[in-house]
Design a protein around this nucleic acid. Sequence first.
DNA 1: GTCTATAAATCGATAGAC
DNA 2: GTCTATCGATTTATAGAC
Lengths: 233, 233
Amino acid sequence: MSATGIRARNRAALLEAITETANRQLTQVGPSELSVRAVARELGMASSAIYRYVSSRDELLTLLIVSAYDEMAGDVERAAARTRDPHKRWMAIGLGSREWALAQPQRFALIYGSPVPGYAAPQDTIGPATRIPALLTGILQEVGAQPQVPAFTSRVGRSLQPALNDVEQWAGLTQTRFNDAALALGVMAWTHMIGSISSELFGHRHNVVGDSLADRRAYYQFELQVLAGLLGI
Amino acid sequence: MSATGIRARNRAALLEAITETANRQLTQVGPSELSVRAVARELGMASSAIYRYVSSRDELLTLLIVSAYDEMAGDVERAAARTRDPHKRWMAIGLGSREWALAQPQRFALIYGSPVPGYAAPQDTIGPATRIPALLTGILQEVGAQPQVPAFTSRVGRSLQPALNDVEQWAGLTQTRFNDAALALGVMAWTHMIGSISSELFGHRHNVVGDSLADRRAYYQFELQVLAGLLGI
DNA sequence: GTCTATAAATCGATAGAC
DNA sequence: GTCTATCGATTTATAGAC
């Protein structure tokens, strides 16, 4: 193994230690107070040394964001892969997403919570961000979803079609094709999934749904069933 | 008017100036970097003087949170009051909530975004926070909502009932009464409303639904219609 | 590639004069 | 009730020795 190979391995190991430490600190301070210096301090490095690995606070954030998207998507993909039945896959994606979020609340908040002020996401984040939605798209395609939604035949439904151009474009890229109702409801289901997890995680549901873990899970599962009904899955 | 009266008026005026300035700064820095000193600086006060009005950073945050809940609820209540038709009231609540959020994104993020690390909400915030949900409860009661949801007859639906104890308790407090399905779907509709607004506002829907204001509004309106259908409104 | 030292700021909160 | 002054801490980022 060449010297550069060894260096590269050390470098990769240290980069991983940095993201681990940064993620640990995120449990205590929130993304916008994340400090490059504090990470270095905890690792026993000089504050200046860490800049050889991460050139700025924003780059550190990007690292954390990409790793969060990727690890969450990995977990969810594995959960979904355990069955081929479309309805069970849908439930596995929903429940798997929530489980990851409950286990890593600060990382979930990093990618789905309020934007970090002053931080502009680079292109690197959009690929990892679309992995879970792509799973949903796959299910819709598989079942050839043709949901019957009354709202779609109304004036509102017709005025909606131009709004879905982007979804159709994306569907084209991923070699899938559905009717507009399936597209719109798919986005709605995804929106609800993330919104409901956020609501539970961020404490907007205290005094509303029972606080026990079992109650909260039962309620979320109910929501997933309702959405499945809407999608005709 | 007594001296204390004059003082009280000055005090109230300055308190309002403080919240205004703090809200303005929130458009640039995010809740967790909000600085008491920076507010004082912008107002031309000494940093120590402001502590006569706001005893800590957390108290300033509470002030902002309560005012955000109250102003949003005020706007939405006024919008809802323009009609008595339940369906139109529902749409007015949904569209009014989104409009306020688009006009005041940082204040929406303050109350519905990721929690501010280290900040614990005092009791003062729960009253203002329930005003909009109370509007929804009112509509459900008015129409005597009896939605038929397949998921409710399933095993999941039955296991859900204990989770709704808190909602029923709250419904009791507000002199309302519904069946469990209406309660569960009401929470779901509220969850979706906030989640969808967050998704649009926080940029999680770029490259998905058309980026123009008209497209985004049309899509949101479609979602509201679907939810109305679920609720039987 | 890690270190010390440093620049130029920021912050929350308090003490005490007026 | 507003001011100055201060404490004790933080931060991003760079310069330059080794």
